[in-house]
């Protein structure tokens, strides 16, 4: 998961005022470099707003990886059979590794891993909303591994073409691993969907539960604002939320139907004239409620993470003993 940077609704209507105190000449050079497709590196000049938005985005992505390990992680101990248990362990391990890579990328912009994790456990920074929903059954874990990772890949492949060098390089590596997750998830869902009646029922029910969060995954339609525009111009945001959602539907709805599964949205269909998918508008009030802490698992996820941080504090303290200066990673 899942570099979906949710733009704070309060920031959407900000104008170019964020650039008011930037040196126009440096700003023009910076924008020209991005225009030419060059990567921005940690020591390069960048507008304060660019730095701020990137930190927020990469950090959210890192948090999503580490929080995402929780709903799937609870199924490692219950995975049915050696093959699944080993594969799920490796997958969730990858996700934790992604968090590590992403935190390192964000650290190059000047925020320490510790500060980021602090903001996570105090609820100050966000993570992908989907992880505030429970994984009730084994089939839920399989649907997550297939479709949530599929969504993540769409998002991350887009972001890998962004402008910030360390983030792009982290994403290239992450995307390679995500493609294995997708394969693993798909294989699991195929097994259930072509299995016994009990297994088919399990996987259909899981899909029904996960469909609304999946539709929420890419975020609400982007408001056309100067803020969004500037993030796209700076190649911080690489595709609109709606475009990514369309891409996802186009790639995966046919695959879902092929398996004899149904999608719990009677209005879902491809409009052959426009080439676009039509669907029931997701409940964005619910989305906002969940992202602001009101989802079924927000409290639990943060409590688990906070508890892990508390219990591990003595280890981190011990590691500091004898260590002199903090070294910023070379991402």
């Amino acid at each position: 998961m899942y570099g979906n940077a949710y733009i704070d609704p309060n920031e959407v209507n900000k104008t170019h005022s964020v650039l008011a105190d930037e040196d126009p000449k440096l700003l023009a050079e910076f924008e020209a470099r991005i225009e030419r497709g060059e990567k921005i590196e940690p020591k390069d000049w960048m507008p304060k707003e660019y730095r701020k938005q990137l930190i927020r985005m990469i950090e959210q992505h890192g948090h999503s990886e580490i929080i995402g390990a929780l709903p799937e992680g609870t199924w490692i101990t219950r995975a049915p059979g050696f093959k699944r248990k080993l594969a799920l362990m490796a997958k969730v391990q990858d996700e934790v590794g992604h968090a590590q890579l992403l935190y390192s990328a964000a650290e190059t912009l000047g925020k320490s891993r510790e500060a980021m994790i602090n903001d996570l456990i105090t609820g100050k920074s966000k993570y992908s909303n989907v992880f505030n929903y429970p994984a009730f059954t084994w089939a839920d874990a399989c649907i997550i591994a297939w479709l949530i990772d599929a969504g993540a890949i769409i998002n991350q492949v887009a972001n890998a073409k962004g402008s910030y060098g360390p983030y792009c390089r982290a994403l290239d590596r992450i995307c390679t691993e995500e493609s294995f997750h997708l394969k693993y998830g798909h294989d699991n869902v195929v097994t259930l969907a072509t299995g016994t009646p009990v297994q088919r029922k399990m996987v259909q029910e899981a899909l029904n539960r996960w469909w609304p969060p999946i539709m929420h995954f890419f975020g609400p339609s982007d408001k056309i604002s100067s803020h969004t525009e500037i993030l796209m111009k700076w190649k911080v945001k690489m595709a609109t939320n709606d475009d990514m959602r369309q891409q996802f539907l186009n790639m995966y709805v046919p695959k879902i139907w092929d398996l004899g599964l149904t999608v719990p949205d009677a209005n879902l269909k491809k409009n052959e004239t426009t080439g676009k998918w039509e669907y029931t508008e997701p409940d964005w009030d619910e989305f906002k409620r969940v992202i602001n802490g009101g989802g079924p698992c927000n409290a639990e996820r943060l409590a688990v993470r906070r508890n892990a941080e508390e219990r591990g504090r003595w280890v981190r303290e011990a590691l500091k003993a004898g260590q002199t200066a903090y070294v910023v990673p070379f991402a």
């Binding site: 580490i66 390990a69 992680g73 490796a90 969730v92 968090a99 935190y103 892990a308």
Partner: peptide, 16 residues
């Protein structure tokens, strides 16, 4: 069982 819960990310990964 340490996956996601280790004292540092590197140890989650090692135990996994």
């Amino acid at each position: 069982e340490w996956t996601g819960l280790g004292p540092i990310l590197e140890e989650d990964i090692a135990f996994s």
